[in-house]
Structures are given as C-alpha cells and as structure tokens.
C-alpha cells in the first residue's frame, strides 16, 4: 500500500506525458502535433520538478531560519529545457505556416496524397 501512495504522483505524470505523446503520433493535423509535443515536454518538466520536491521543503532561495529546501538542480535543468521546448515549438509552428502556404493544407494525410501525385 505504501508503495502505491509513494508513487501515484509519478503515475499521473506518466499519464500526462503519454497523452501528449499520443497526440503527436496519432493526429494527422500538424498544429495538433506541435501542441502534442508541447504537452509531452511540459509533462516531462512536471516529472523532473516532482523529482526535485523534498517533503516539508521550500523554494531553494536561502533565507535565515529555513533549513529544508527542495532540490535546485532539476529546476535549473528544466529552466533550460523549457527554453529548448519553446524554440522547438516556434520552429515547428513556422514550418506549419510554410507547409500550409505550399500545400494548402496542414493535414498530414492530404500532404502525403499530394506528394504521391507528383
């Protein structure tokens, strides 16, 4: 039982990750794919930040009278990863805009059909 209580947090985060992952690989709409990547990455960030949490701790900004802090290292990593995620999102969306201009559609299936025709 204690096994379950200690880990259900991570399990929910895994469900969140997989929701994003599912959107990326199952949806033919390109914008939805980018959004799926965004959700996938954001959920991984939640996972990292969950790792960093220390019971009874507080934000890692040193102050008099506080002794227990949460782990600052995953926070740093995720700050970097958020930026990387945004860069990917921006590039992905820019590509979607160009694909729409070139093909007139942002549906992957329709794009395949057009590519086959040529």
């Amino acid at each position: 039982m204690s096994e379950l209580l200690g880990h259900y947090n991570y399990w929910i985060v895994i469900v969140l990750m997989m929701t994003g992952f599912y959107i990326v690989i199952a949806r033919p709409n390109l914008i939805k794919k980018v959004i799926g990547l965004f959700i996938f990455q954001t959920s991984v960030f939640i996972f990292f930040i969950s790792i960093a949490k220390v019971e009874g701790g507080t934000a890692p900004i040193i102050e008099e009278g506080i002794s227990v802090y949460s782990n600052p290292l995953p926070h740093v990593l995720i700050l970097t990863a958020i930026v990387v995620g945004l860069a990917t999102t921006a590039l992905g969306l820019a590509l979607v805009v160009r694909i729409r201009e070139a093909y007139g559609t942002i549906n992957e299936d329709d794009i395949h059909v057009q590519d086959e025709e040529r």
């Binding site: 990326v24 390109l30 990547l37 990455q41 990917t88 992905g92 590509l95 979607v96």
Partner: peptide
C-alpha cells in the same frame, strides 16, 4: 524538416 522535427523532438 517537419517530420524530422517531430521525430527528433520525441
């Protein structure tokens, strides 16, 4: 490029 972006990011 888009296909690569999606797979690469995964």
């Amino acid at each position: 490029a888009f296909q690569y972006l999606v797979m690469g990011t995964i």
